[in-house]
Design a binder for these strands. Structure first.
Lengths: 221, 221
DNA sequence: CGCGATATGCACCAAAAGGTGTATTTTTAT
DNA sequence: ATAAAAATACACCTTTTGGTGCATATCGCG
């Protein structure tokens, strides 16, 4: 495993953004004990960390709390990924809120770690995140899998479309009219229409709007 | 954590599907040592396991190899999830192939474990999978996160649709015609049409097929 | 209060789409 | 080789759609 943000010294520069003083200082102390990490800074507010980066501060990884005064951790993640895409953001929280998990991921977080993680495991996860891993608890993973299944359901029904019909279907989804289809495939518009009508029968629909929806929702294309 | 398939005795009935004899028997022995698990059976082929279930065999969890003679592990997972949806399928493999990971998940696998996992960790993962967890290695998790980001991209553009236009847009995606829209919303068909034409202008499209595609692909609904 | 945005409605027209029927050629499978 | 399936094409007709212009009522916000 090759560290994505390896520093010459081999140490990872870690930043901590956490508003509770005790937790913040506890993390700073505990994580600093491990030779693989160097604590680049610990901040009570996301804005402080952003300013740190803007004024030349360096960090490979940041542990980001979600509940923060001012800018919350998810908004901060989004901003950070926009301006410093190489930075690895790990969400560190006590909650397993489904929406927060998904929002974090969409915002660009690399991992989602729970605060009850043991220090040794936490360090392993941080190091893994600097490589090609994404530390995620099994519980969070379950939520993500469910979401992924929703987003990309398995093909079930086979509508037995012919190769030609599939081509035409793709173009219909692209928004082509009969005439445009005819030109593209060098066939008569009436033929394109016939293909589409056949597709309608097979998919049990009766308009382009419906066929586009069915094709996209069922991953027919 | 409440075991999803807890048996009266508290033991989880585990099945193993793995074609390599040494690996299969090694797992049967190693996992049987742990008091939380009971080995319900070990099979060289997915078909054998399916027959086991068909003839009254019971299992809470199955460790499923991907590369099998005859029916492969992913097809088997799909079939098993269809007929025994309560069964927890854990894919156990040496590969981290992106497509295999996604196909497994879509097929209904609960976890994706690599064969180089240490026995103790493996047992922990199996037990976690019987509850609300999904054991997944950080590397696999990274792949899944990337996929999820692709599938559910963060909203970027704001087309500033009004509430009414959004309602109408949803119905257009459902395939309603002007007339049907008019009936549903108790407005004139001409008004429904006006709304749709406004939507076209805002989304820069000019047909229902295009607007359905854009709405679905950009998550406007 | 009044302005602008929103929602509503109608008329008119050309283009596109949907539906049905028929027919020939080509490909595929038995 | 022969039958079935697929791809091609045209005619005819109705409905829907896309586009434009115009007009009125309503609502929110400064």
């Amino acid at each position: 495993m090759i560290a994505r943000n390896a520093r010459p010294g081999g140490q990872l520069a870690l930043a901590i953004v956490e508003d509770e003083r005790d937790v913040r200082e506890g993390l700073r102390y505990l994580l600093g004990l491990d030779g693989r990490l160097r604590i680049a800074g610990a901040f009570a507010k996301a804005e402080d960390f952003i300013q740190f980066l803007e004024t030349g501060g360096q960090a490979d990884i940041v542990l980001m709390d979600i509940h923060l005064p001012g800018m919350d951790g998810i908004a901060a993640t989004r901003l950070l990924q926009g301006r410093w895409p190489e930075l690895v953001v790990l969400i560190l929280t006590i909650f397993e809120d489904q929406d927060a998990i998904l929002d974090s991921i969409k915002a660009g977080a690399t991992g989602y770690i729970l605060k009850n993680t043991k220090p040794e495991a936490l360090i392993d996860q941080i190091v893994s995140a600097s490589g090609d891993g994404s530390p995620i608890s099994p519980t969070v993973a379950r939520r993500i899998l469910e979401e992924l299944r929703k987003a990309a359901p398995a093909r079930t029904v086979d509508y037995a479309l012919t190769a030609r019909e599939l081509e035409v279907l793709r173009d219909v989804v692209e928004g082509l009219t009969y005439r445009e289809l005819a030109d593209k495939h060098h066939i008569a518009a009436s033929t394109a229409k016939k293909h589409i009508l056949h597709i309608y029968q097979k998919l049990n629909v009766s308009s382009k709007a419906e066929v586009v929806r069915k094709a996209l929702e069922e991953g027919l294309i």
